[in-house]
């Protein structure tokens, strides 16, 4: 059970000072910048804000592009995350630790470096350049390149959410299902997925936020074509540099708003996760025999 904080701010002077410090840190570093985005965006009224977003075809396209690139990247991450978590949480095999370490690489690689790597592979002079030219496929400076760059930077987010949850739950239920004759897919859909659904959703929400906001990697592979390959964060920069600061901040406010929605979603999901891990713990501490006896008792 989470220990409810017992000290109140009023109870000791030290507590009051600490609270003031914490509020100051979060306020100065996080709240003030966030507030200034919304302030600048709405400084000329809601009407101006709306028309900055809706009346500029390039801005509309950037919003649409972000809304198509992010979900595809998140979808790839979801499939990968579930498969990878299943692999490392349920099986032991040579190279397992190395694989787990590799999942984290995108986390510490500068996005610019990631973009550069994509250029070295898919660029006209890159490794696959001639092949792509022959096939007449565009990867970088086009939608697939944006998806690849975005997928790369968000890759650890889903799998990292799932591994600890699946390890904590353990394979017992799944093995019971298998011994009762369930197929692999049935086990996944009926047993595993219900157990990990909140963690999965949590990972998806985080990955989506990161995908929407990615700048560095996308910057290198976008090509900056207005109305074609500018995502929302790139559009924010472009508008800012075109002397259209209110419009720039309007787009930024949509991203910031999205961030707030993400936080609400995250908050709700985390409460469910907390509740579930508490249930899990309760079941564990009861012990199997006791648990069964209790169930029998309840049934009787």
């Amino acid at each position: 059970m989470p220990a409810k904080p017992t000290t109140t701010a009023a109870s000791t002077p030290l507590a009051a000072v600490l609270v003031a410090g914490a509020v100051g840190v979060v306020g100065l570093l996080i709240v003030v910048p966030l507030a200034s985005v919304f302030y600048e965006a709405f400084a000329r009224g809601v009407g101006a804000w709306w028309s900055a977003l809706a009346d500029d075809p390039d801005t509309r396209h950037a919003i649409w592009l972000s809304l198509t690139v992010a979900p595809v990247a998140v979808a790839i991450n979801t499939v990968f995350g579930v498969a990878a978590a299943w692999l490392v949480a349920r099986f032991r095999f040579p190279g397992r630790s190395l694989l787990i370490s590799l999942f984290d690489v995108p986390f510490s690689v500068s996005p610019v470096v990631a973009g550069l790597a994509l250029v070295l592979i898919f660029g006209r002079q890159g490794l696959l350049g001639p092949t792509l030219a022959w096939l007449d496929w565009k990867v970088i400076f086009a939608w697939p390149g944006l998806v690849l760059a975005t997928t790369f930077v968000t890759l650890p987010l889903v799998v990292r959410e799932l591994i600890p949850v699946m390890e904590a739950i353990g394979p017992e239920e799944e093995m019971a299902a298998v011994s009762l004759g369930a197929s692999g897919w049935q086990v996944f859909w009926r047993v595993t997925l219900p157990n990990i659904r909140w963690a999965l959703l949590h990972g998806i929400v985080l990955a989506n936020a990161r995908a929407m906001g990615e700048f560095g990697a996308v910057y290198v592979v976008s090509g900056h074509i207005a109305g074609a390959t500018d995502t929302m964060p790139l559009r924010v920069e472009k508008l800012f540099q075109e002397y259209r600061q209110p419009a720039s901040m309007a787009v930024a406010s949509v991203l910031a708003g999205l961030a707030l929605v993400t936080l609400v979603a995250k908050f709700v999901i985390e409460r469910r996760l907390e509740a579930e891990s508490r249930e899990l713990e309760a079941t564990r501490t009861l012990g199997d025999d006791q648990h069964t006896r209790q169930l029998e008792g309840a049934a009787a």
Partner: peptide
């Protein structure tokens, strides 16, 4: 809740 804002706010912004 506010602590998580930097995770979700685009860094360019």
């Amino acid at each position: 809740a506010l602590v998580d804002v930097p995770l979700a706010l685009p860094t360019a912004v």
